[in-house]
């Protein structure tokens, strides 16, 4: 469409008499425009080609990971490099977006999902390497506000009047229909009997980090995000935590993909994610070990 339109402009730019003579000059800017388009659409060279053959340490792997795990994962990757592991790249987005990309054949090695349903879906599609699926840790939901607002800490139960606290503003939540953090938030608000009233006050964000940004920037006076995001963000503070019984368990699963471009390096990093070093880093960022859902 952009191509066609830039030519339409090129044609219209000409003066009428030029048009009548049907002498079509190619003007400068559509050419420049197309050149630019051509440049940006040239695919970046793939950093890894074909099936794994070389030594594990030399291979770079690509991990598709839920946006909420980004900060902790970067630290884990550094620790991995420090013990001689290979380079790890991350593609961070909403679990839903990543799962869709994996279904469409994205060349990822590992998938870290913030949600059981999406991991089940990828699993049922036969895209996971057999036996690699592991429950990594759990998380909690918290109600947050910008640090410099004067809300008092609250107990998150049926007596909570979120509408009054919003005071006409919006509640920043990841998309409550598709993104895991938003789905959990909706379930929690449904359990508290607040969803019907609050639904119209929600600002659905593209992922949980976007919801955090909206609260940080004071766009939304309140938000519901993961405890781990709240912890990692200085400009927001936690007003109260949602009880884990209010929503499905927030389980983070990791698995190796059946078509991983670098399977040996992927297994090595998958094992490292479950090592004590990685567990320490994750718990420092607030992720709870899988068997202990209630501890912070």
């Amino acid at each position: 469409m952009q191509y066609i339109l830039s030519y339409i402009i090129a044609a219209w730019r000409q003066r009428p008499e030029v048009h009548r003579n049907r002498a079509v000059r190619i003007s400068r800017w559509p050419v420049a425009c197309l050149t630019l388009l051509g440049l940006v659409s040239v695919p970046a060279p793939f950093t890894q080609g074909g099936p794994a053959a070389g030594p594990v340490a030399g291979q770079e792997i690509l991990v598709f990971a839920a946006a909420s795990t980004g900060t902790a994962l970067a630290e884990v990757a550094n620790a991995y490099a420090a013990v001689g592991g290979g380079r790890v790249r991350f593609s961070l987005a909403a679990t839903s977006a990543l799962a869709r990309q994996i279904e469409s054949g994205a060349p990822a090695d590992l998938f870290l999902s913030a949600n059981t349903a999406w991991m089940d879906r990828v699993d049922e599609a036969g895209l996971l390497a057999a036996g690699s699926r592991t429950l990594l840790f759990r998380n909690r939901l918290v109600l947050v506000a910008p640090s410099d607002t004067d809300f008092d800490p609250v107990a998150v139960d049926i007596s909570l009047d979120v509408e009054a606290m919003l005071d006409g503003g919006r509640l920043a939540v990841a998309d409550p229909v598709s993104v895991p953090a938003g789905i959990y938030a909706r379930q929690a608000l449904e359990s508290l009997g607040m969803w019907d009233r609050l639904q119209a006050r929600v600002a659905p964000a593209s992922d949980v980090r976007h919801a955090t940004l909206l609260v940080r920037r004071h766009e939304a006076p309140l938000g519901i995000v993961y405890w781990t995001d709240a912890r990692d963000t200085a400009e927001i503070r936690v007003l109260g935590a949602f009880s884990p019984e209010l929503h499905d368990p927030i389980a983070y699963w990791v698995a190796q993909l059946a078509d991983a471009p670098a399977p040996a390096a992927a297994s090595a990093f998958l094992a490292f994610l479950q090592s004590d070093v990685a567990r320490t880093i994750f718990s420092r960022h607030g992720f709870a070990p899988p068997l202990d859902a209630n501890t912070r």
């Binding site: 909403a94 839903s96 869709r100 998309d175 229909v177 598709s178 659905p204 964000a205 593209s206 976007h210």
Partner: peptide
């Protein structure tokens, strides 16, 4: 989506609605 997020009826235009639909299992 970055500036005004994706509120149905307020800021969820066609491309945003399409993106939201594509994010739901079975959408």
């Amino acid at each position: 989506i970055t500036f005004v997020s994706s509120i149905p009826g307020e800021t969820r235009t066609l491309p945003l609605a399409l993106y939201a639909a594509a994010q739901v299992p079975g959408g």
